[in-house]
């Protein structure tokens, strides 16, 4: 009988053993139990019907705000835009000081220094998308230099993309080593940048692949696993997030270590955000319901959360005139 995935990774020697060769790693990843696609879809759909109202809703709105990685990843990003994004991250609603700050801002590498200077000691982290984001099509040397650049500018978090081409053609070891090499760079020179690994689930085709990629990222030392770049449709979906959260749960059961989770892209409304929070609560439990272990990669979501918050605090419906134009 082959040993269970959990018992393999629980033991450092076992982990070293399956990552020793491409063939061993493939055997391990393909030995993971398959995902019941219909079941995952149905479970996610069932959980998304939960109704969150009144005080629970108020709590969830503030929690969601605190979990946001406020993101701008456009070719047209200007220093001015990043400055205003940072101001918004520190104080999302200028009229209401009781709104908490977001978890982080997420920008391209070249704007990290600027964002870092803007955010100062506010506690809002700066995340940089590195490793030839969003395609990941560059040599390892370029990817590592890209990451190093962001880390030396002071990025607190690195969002890297995996090489989907290598993953889909079965060169798992290459993907694993690449993640491990980037992870190495994140702690160079006394830095301690958290590494988020973007699986780009929209390109992985099956839930089985999503589960394999999740395990692969965690085996390589990811601090967070993240669904998507936001540049590909579909981006984050509830079932995919469910599969990844299950991987986080199984990983902790096996190794005792927690890995964070970040769905990104396509989360636009308060209702969407609530569904993700319910999913987290029901899949991995309350330990993950903090910005340290769960993030929402979004930009327009924050405005909708603020509108809902204004509605709850003033008792009347608000409108887009009362939030920023992004």
């Amino acid at each position: 009988m082959t040993p269970s995935p959990a018992s393999v990774v629980a033991d450092p020697a076992g982990l070293a053993d399956v990552t020793r060769s491409d063939a061993a790693l493939r055997r391990f990843l393909h030995g993971l139990p398959g995902v019941d696609q219909v079941g995952a879809d149905a479970r996610a759909a069932a959980l998304s019907t939960r109704s969150i109202k009144t005080t629970a809703k108020a709590f969830a709105i503030d929690l969601a705000v605190r979990m946001i990685d406020l993101t701008t990843l456009e070719g047209a990003d200007t220093p001015g835009k990043v400055r205003s994004l940072c101001a918004k991250a520190r104080r999302p609603d200028p009229h209401d000081a009781s709104v908490p700050a977001t978890a982080a801002v997420c920008v391209y590498n070249d704007l990290v220094g600027l964002a870092k200077a803007e955010l100062g000691g506010s506690g809002v982290k700066v995340a940089a998308v590195s490793t030839a984001f969003p395609s990941g099509r560059a040599s390892l040397a370029v990817k590592l230099a890209d990451t190093r650049d962001a880390v030396t500018q002071g990025a607190d978090e690195i969002d890297m993309v995996i090489d989907r081409g290598a993953f889909l053609s079965g060169r798992y070891l290459e993907v694993l080593e690449e993640i491990a090499a980037v992870k190495q760079v994140c702690s160079e020179g006394g830095a301690d940048a958290h590494l988020k690994v973007i699986l780009e689930t929209g390109e992985l085709a099956t839930y089985d692949n999503v589960r394999r990629a999740s395990w692969l990222a965690m085996m390589a030392g990811a601090d967070f696993i993240k669904t998507s770049t936001g540049k590909i449709s579909p981006a984050a979906t509830l079932p995919v997030t469910l599969v990844m959260l299950e991987a986080c749960r199984d990983w902790r059961d096996a190794t005792g270590a927690m890995v964070g989770m970040k769905p990104a892209g396509g989360i636009r409304t308060t209702k969407d955000a609530m569904r993700y929070l319910v999913l987290v609560n029901e899949t991995v439990g309350t330990d993950w319901l903090t910005p340290d272990w769960f993030r929402l990669g979004a930009s327009s979501l924050l405005n909708d959360l603020l509108l809902q918050r204004q509605r709850m605090s003033t008792g009347r419906y608000s409108g887009p005139d009362y939030v920023t134009v992004d």
Binding site: G315, R316, Y317, S318, G319, P320, D321
Partner: peptide, 9 residues
């Protein structure tokens, strides 16, 4: 009343 107080009307 909800229409009258709505900030986007």
């Amino acid at each position: 009343p909800w229409l009258a107080s709505h900030m986007d009307v």
